[in-house]
Amino acid sequence: MGERRVDAAEIDQVPWDAAEVWGRAGDAARLTEFGDALVRERAVLHKRLRNLDHRLTQVLRALALTPGRQFVKQLLHVYREAGATDAGTQSGPRFLASLLAEAQTLEDLLPVLSDDGGALWDELRACLFHELLLRGVDADEIRRRSHNIHFCAPWGGLAWLPDKLADMEHGAPFPSRSYNGGAGIGCPRMSSPVALDAAARGAGAAHPVADVTTVRLAEAITGPPEQGNWGAHDVGVFTTERPVTPEELPGVVASLPMECLEGLGAEHRFVFAPCSLGEVWRVLFATASGAGVYGPGVYGAYGRLSAWWSLAGLAGAQPGAGPAEVEEQASACTWMRFEADSEWFHNEINDYGIVALAPDGRRIAVLAATDTD
Rank of each mutant, 00 (worst) to 15 (best):
P296K: 06
A288K: 04
S276I: 08
A286G: 09
L284F: 09
F272V: 09
A273V: 04
G300E: 01
A291D: 15
V280L: 10
F285S: 00
T287S: 10
G297A: 01
P296D: 09
G300T: 04
V293G: 03
G278I: 09
V280Y: 09
L284T: 05
G278P: 10
V293Q: 12
Y294Q: 13
P274V: 08
L284Y: 06
A291N: 14
G292E: 03
V271K: 07
A301T: 06
G295C: 06
V293I: 05
F270D: 02
A288V: 09
S289H: 07
F272C: 09
F272W: 15
Y299H: 11
W281F: 15
V298E: 00
P274T: 10
E279G: 10
V298Q: 01
A273P: 09
A301V: 09
G292A: 04
A286C: 08
Y302M: 12
S276F: 13
G297I: 03
A273D: 08
Y294K: 14
V280S: 08
Y299L: 03
T287K: 05
V280C: 13
S289V: 01
G295A: 07
F272T: 14
A286K: 02
G295Y: 07
G295H: 08
A286T: 13
G292W: 02
C275F: 04
A286P: 00
G300H: 00
R282Y: 07
A301P: 01
R282D: 03
F285W: 08
V298R: 00
L284K: 05
P274R: 13
S276P: 11
F285G: 00
A286Q: 04
G290C: 02
T287F: 03
G295N: 08
V293W: 10
G295K: 09
P296C: 05
V298N: 01
F270R: 02
A286V: 04
G300N: 01
V293Y: 11
A288W: 04
F270W: 10
R282P: 04
R269L: 12
S276V: 11
V280A: 10
V283I: 15
G295P: 04
S289I: 01
R269A: 11
W281I: 07
G292K: 03
G292L: 06
L284E: 01
L284Q: 02
F272H: 15
V298A: 05
T287L: 11
A286I: 01
G297Q: 02
G292M: 03
V293M: 12
A301Y: 05
S289Y: 04
V293C: 13
Y299T: 11
P296E: 08
G297V: 09
V283E: 11
L277Q: 13
R269K: 13
R282K: 15
G297P: 05
Y299W: 15
R269S: 12
T287M: 12
L277W: 06
G295S: 08
S276T: 15
Y299Q: 06
F272P: 01
G290A: 05
Y302I: 04
Y294E: 06
A273W: 06
F285N: 03
W281A: 07
F272K: 05
P296S: 10
V283P: 00
T287Y: 07
C275Q: 15
V283T: 14
G290W: 03
F272N: 04
F270G: 00
R282V: 02
F272M: 01
G297N: 03
F285Y: 15
V280E: 06
G290N: 07
L277A: 12
Y302W: 08
T287A: 11
F285T: 00
W281K: 02
G278L: 12
Y302D: 11
A291I: 00
F272A: 13
